[in-house]
Amino acid sequence: QPSQKLKSVFAVVASYAFLWPLKKPQQLTNEKTVDELQALINYADDLFENGHYEDSYEILSTFHDQENMEIQWRLVRALYNMSKDTKYERNHRKKFVYQAYEIVTKLITCHAQHNVVQKWYALILDTKSSYEGIKERIQQLENLAVTLNPDDATSLHMLGEWCYQITEMPWHQRKIAEVLFASPPRSTYEDALEYFLKAEAAEPRFYSMNLLRIGNCYLKMERDDQAKYYLKLAA
């Protein structure tokens, strides 16, 4: 019997089967209409939402269009999720992140006002910084804070994460930062909490990690009742 995962793939493929008898992939690349492109995007989105990130990436990369933002940010999204999949070795996951970074840095120069581009730029920049040294991480966290859209829940969470990571920086890394920077960045749990709460207000329950961070901040601030409330929500 086919597995449930295979069944879901077959269902998605079947619903978009009309795309392939019409034209070969090479023809679609050169002659795609608005309707065909939207059908492709819908197909890739369905694959992504069913957890088939690599399949979504392959479909989108087949019709890679340097000028099309909708294709590009979805490629970044797929690569980001592939980079979180432990079935790949660490070096492969890192490669996915750097590939996504190359795409999204080009996007941000042309589409800096688009929230979805800002969101994925923020996520990729933060993930990339985790593979690098303390100096690069601080610089990229600062770049992240400057770039983010302050009205978007994900962006607000990332700003909170920036403050949280700076506050949580171990003693030895702080000493390194003091050597590397004339004025190393500083933050507090109160700063981080403010952003996490704003993110929650902008889009309630949008991300369990945001709830967890709120709970953690309250714990650090010794406000146990509030901490318990948010940690239960995050569980």
Results as ranks from 00 to 15, higher is better:
7 K>D: 01
10 F>R: 11
11 A>T: 07
11 A>L: 13
13 V>G: 00
13 V>T: 03
15 S>K: 15
17 A>C: 10
21 P>S: 09
21 P>A: 06
25 P>M: 08
26 Q>D: 11
28 L>P: 02
32 K>V: 08
34 V>H: 12
35 D>A: 13
37 L>P: 05
38 Q>T: 12
40 L>A: 05
41 I>N: 01
41 I>Q: 04
43 Y>A: 09
45 D>F: 13
45 D>N: 15
48 F>G: 02
49 E>G: 14
51 G>E: 05
59 I>H: 00
59 I>G: 00
60 L>R: 01
62 T>K: 08
66 Q>I: 10
67 E>S: 14
70 E>G: 03
71 I>D: 01
71 I>C: 00
73 W>A: 02
77 R>S: 04
89 E>F: 14
90 R>T: 07
94 K>F: 04
96 F>E: 05
100 A>M: 01
102 E>N: 13
107 L>P: 06
107 L>V: 07
107 L>S: 08
111 H>G: 10
112 A>I: 06
112 A>D: 08
123 L>R: 07
127 T>A: 15
129 S>I: 02
130 S>Y: 15
132 E>D: 05
133 G>R: 00
134 I>R: 10
142 E>R: 15
146 V>E: 12
146 V>L: 13
148 L>G: 09
152 D>L: 09
154 T>P: 07
157 H>V: 02
159 L>V: 00
161 E>Q: 15
161 E>D: 15
162 W>C: 06
164 Y>F: 10
164 Y>W: 09
165 Q>M: 11
167 T>Q: 09
167 T>G: 02
170 P>C: 07
174 R>A: 06
176 I>P: 06
178 E>W: 09
182 A>C: 10
182 A>F: 09
183 S>E: 07
191 D>M: 03
194 E>A: 14
199 A>T: 14
199 A>K: 08
202 A>L: 04
206 F>T: 00
206 F>Y: 09
207 Y>T: 04
208 S>L: 06
209 M>V: 03
213 R>P: 08
215 G>Y: 01
216 N>V: 07
220 K>Y: 13
221 M>E: 05
223 R>C: 07
223 R>D: 05
224 D>K: 14
227 A>Y: 05
230 Y>W: 14
232 K>E: 10
232 K>Q: 07
233 L>N: 00
234 A>E: 03
234 A>C: 03
